[in-house]
Computed example of a mutant assay.
Amino acid sequence: MSLSTNPAPKASTLEGPSGDALPATGVRGRILDVAYELFSRRGVRDVGVNELISRSGVAKASFYRHFASKDELVLAFLERRDQQWTVDMIVSEARRRGDTAESQLLSIFDVFADWFARDDFEACSFINILLEMGAGHPLGQASIDYLAKIRGHVQQLAEEAGLRDPEGFSRSWHILMKGSIVSAAEGDRAAAGRAREMAGWLISSHRRG
């Protein structure tokens, strides 16, 4: 990485609704915070740009300076969702709870059980947006890609556990994950425990030897 001897330019600022100057990154973050709350609970089509602007407390020009379109904002939301939900909440917490790769796989459903019991349980945004927008829409395809990343995390754990056919295992395991989320959204808050039991059978069937 090369370092410039020129002085660094000052951070660009934008005026907030009250006339206060806000760092550009702060404006973007505020919009994304609001979008995260709304998209994760209500999906895409039910949330309009005007509501996003109003709830964010930014000017329309500021909104479009950071996000050229609503779809671009949804893509940023999905990226954040992947980091906060998939990586930080599910994968990292499951790895923390389990001592072995197999136990870490099973711990995914322990994490799910805690999640399903929360009053703010909002199901899986990747599934929701895929079903809402369809696989042929760019947002639907992005959701498919993020779901594939989840399978990738499962496949990595399966490889660490020495299970047979890690790729096929991850697809079967992901069916249990997605199915338990849908069941919890239907009102079955014990869905994680049911899925965990079936997950144990799946692990047994993929052990070598």
Rank of each mutant, 00 (worst) to 15 (best):
F169A: 05
A35H: 05
S183L: 11
D114K: 05
D20P: 02
F116S: 05
L52A: 06
S54A: 14
A191Y: 04
F39C: 03
Q155M: 14
Q156H: 15
R55Q: 15
A8P: 06
D119G: 07
R42V: 11
L14A: 00
E93A: 07
A161K: 07
R208M: 12
Y64I: 05
A161E: 02
R42H: 06
R194T: 14
R30K: 12
H153D: 13
A195P: 00
I181T: 06
A61K: 11
E159R: 11
G179R: 10
M198I: 10
L105P: 04
G168I: 03
F39H: 02
Y146K: 09
Q84T: 12
A148Q: 08
I31K: 07
G134N: 04
A117S: 15
K60D: 03
E122C: 08
A199M: 10
L105W: 04
D120C: 05
F39Y: 15
G48A: 11
D71S: 14
A142M: 06
S56T: 04
P7I: 04
E197W: 09
D88K: 09
S12E: 14
D120M: 08
P138C: 04
P9F: 10
R189P: 05
D165I: 14
L3E: 00
H206F: 10
A184Y: 11
A21D: 06
W85Q: 05
N6F: 09
T13P: 02
V154K: 10
L73A: 06
L73I: 09
E132S: 11
G26C: 01
R65A: 15
P17H: 04
Y146N: 00
R42E: 13
Q155V: 05
M133V: 09
S54K: 11
L163M: 00
I127G: 02
K178A: 06
R80M: 07
Y36R: 05
R118A: 10
K10V: 15
E122N: 14
A61R: 09
R81D: 01
G140C: 02
E51L: 13
G136H: 15
